[in-house]
Amino acid sequence: MQDTPPLQVESLTPEPGAARLVMTGELDYTTAQDASAEVAKTLAEGVDVLEFDLAGLNFIDSSGMAVVMNAYSDAEERGTAFRIVALTPYLRHLIEVVALDDVLDLPG
């Protein structure tokens, strides 16, 4: 029935030294591992800035949130800046519920 994979991750280079992962679809228990692998690969390339574009996510669960939180702490450990450049209202709500809005760099 479903032609497209449940989660697509596209890697862009908005400026030199920065990497932007654009995630579209569902970030959940079944897709979290693929997303984490993509994050690990990007960080291993040694970028200065890691950006997430999450405006195209139509579903996220606790495993998906774990991907975001792991990206934040892994980036911090490497001294890489981490920011979320785009997200859905629902995702913003979730980030507020887990009280990470003070910590994460979110779009205004």
């Binding site: 934040y72 702490s73 519920v97 887990v98 009280a99 990470l100 910590v103």
Partner: peptide, 13 residues
């Protein structure tokens, strides 16, 4: 009432 998720941050609020 609110607060940060556990297991993610060194210092929670």
């Amino acid at each position: 009432v609110r607060g940060s998720i556990l297991g993610a941050l060194k210092k929670i609020s």
